[in-house]
Design a binder for these strands. Structure first.
Lengths: 206, 206
DNA sequence: CAATACTTGTGCCTGATTGCACAAAATCTT
DNA sequence: AAGATTTTGTGCAATCAGGCACAAGTATTG
C-alpha cells in the first residue's frame, strides 16, 4: 500500500464503507458511485472520494466503483483480507451475546477463546467453546498468538484484565466495560458503551 | 444553559467525562483537576478545560473542579438529570443482554418496553417486562411518549423498524444492527457495531 | 505573611479536516 | 459520431479543532 500516515478519522470511516458495500453486494449490485454510497451511509460524496484516493485510484470516471474490486481493496487496507482470532474475557450476559453473535465471521474475525473468573462458569460450553479460567489468561493467549480481545467484565476489574491482556501480547481491545482503559501506546482500544451512546443523543432532545 | 451552537464533538466527550467523574465519586474522591481527569480518560487537560468552558465556569483556580458540582452541571447539559424511558426492539441475544444490562439506571435511562416480531416470543417475560408484538410498535411507543429506542433486530429489517420508530415519535435510536439508517434530520442515531470497532483497529496491527 | 505551587479559562496560533469546483475520462443518447 | 451526461481525483479555500502558554486567582508552605 502507498500509505504514509493516514489520519485515524479516515481509517475509522473505511469499515462503514465496507459494510455498505457488502450490503450492496448481497443485493447483487455490482457498481456504485461516491454519490450513491454517500447517500447510503450519510457521508458526502467528496469525502468518500477523498478518503479512498488516499490509498489509490479505485474508481473509473463515468462509471464509479466496481464493488467487488473496491471491497477487496478496503479489506486489504484494513487487513481484514484474513481471519483474526479473537478472545472474549468475561462471560456474563454481554459476553454470551457477543460470543454467539453471528456477524463476525464474514467480517474478518473468529472467536477462539472464552475466559471468565467465576469457578462455576469454567468448563461450561458456549457454542462449541469451553469457558477457560482467567487465571491462565496470559499464557493461553500468548501461546495461541491472539492479538485481539473483547473485554466484557465488570468495570471494577476491567483495568486489571486489560493489563493482563497486554501482558499476553494483545494489541487491540474492544472494551464493553464502562470505563476508560490505560494501555501502552501501541495497543488500540475501541469502546462500546450503550449509555455513552444514549447520552450523546439526549443533549439534542427537548 | 448559555449554549449557542456547541460542536457535536464536544458533546460526544461529555459522557466520557461524566463516566470518569462517576467513578471518582464512587471512590469517595471529591475534587479533581483537568490534568488528573485528562490522564484518566486519555484526553489533554487543555481540551477538557476548553470543552467545559463552553458551558460556564465550573472550576476554581488552584483547586480544580468539585466533582459533585461538575457532575450536576454535565448531567444538566446532557439532560440526563432526569430519567428517560427507552424501548428495545428485537429480543434476540443482543436485545436480551441489553434489556438486562444494569448500567442504564444510574446514567439516566430506564427500559420500559420490549418488542419482537416472532409470535413465540411475544408475551414472554424478560426481567419484569413482557415482550410485546412489533405490530403495535407505533401506537404503543407513541402513547407511552417514548423518545428513545434501542434497535437490535436483524440488519434486513432494521430500516423498516427504524422508520416505524420515527413514525411513533422516537427521536433517538441506538442502533445495534450492522447497517446505516436513513432517518429525518431531527432524529439522532448512534451506532454500536462490534465488527466496525474491530476493523478500526486491525489497520494498525502487523 | 511572603513566597511558592497549583490550576483555571482563554487568546492565539498551527495543523487537520471538510467542502467546492473543475478538468479529464468514461459512458450514454440520439 | 457528436453532443450530453456521469463521475472520478484533486487543487484550493474555508472552516474546524487542538495545543501552547500565560495572566489571574486560589491554596499551601515555611
Amino acid at each position: 500500500m502507498p500509505t504514509e500516515n493516514i489520519p485515524d478519522i479516515i481509517i475509522s470511516r473505511l469499515p462503514i464503507y465496507l459494510r455498505a458495500l457488502q450490503r450492496f453486494s448481497e443485493k447483487g449490485i455490482q457498481t456504485t458511485s461516491s454519490q450513491e454510497l454517500g447517500e447510503r451511509v450519510g457521508i458526502s460524496a467528496a469525502q468518500i472520494r477523498k478518503d479512498l484516493s488516499q490509498f489509490g485510484e479505485f474508481g473509473k470516471q463515468g462509471t464509479g466503483y466496481y464493488i467487488p474490486f473496491l471491497m477487496d481493496k478496503i479489506r486489504s487496507i484494513l487487513k481484514v483480507d484474513r481471519i483474526w482470532d479473537v478472545a472474549i474475557v468475561g462471560m456474563g450476559d454481554v459476553g454470551h451475546a457477543v460470543a454467539r453473535y453471528p456477524g463476525f465471521s464474514n467480517r474478518g474475525f473468529r472467536v477462539v477463546m472464552l475466559f471468565d473468573a467465576s469457578p462455576e462458569k469454567i468448563g461450561q460450553k458456549v457454542g462449541d467453546l469451553d469457558i477457560k479460567s482467567i487465571d491462565n489468561l496470559v499464557s493461553e493467549i500468548r501461546s495461541a498468538g491472539v492479538k485481539i480481545a473483547m473485554l466484557s467484565v465488570p468495570a471494577a476489574s476491567a483495568q486489571d484484565v486489560a493489563s493482563k491482556l497486554v501482558e499476553g501480547g494483545v494489541k487491540a481491545i474492544l472494551n464493553y466495560a464502562p470505563i476508560s482503559l490505560a494501555v501502552p501506546a501501541d495497543v488500540k482500544v475501541q469502546y462500546i458503551d450503550p449509555s455513552i451512546g444514549l447520552q450523546r443523543m439526549t443533549y439534542y432532545l427537548d
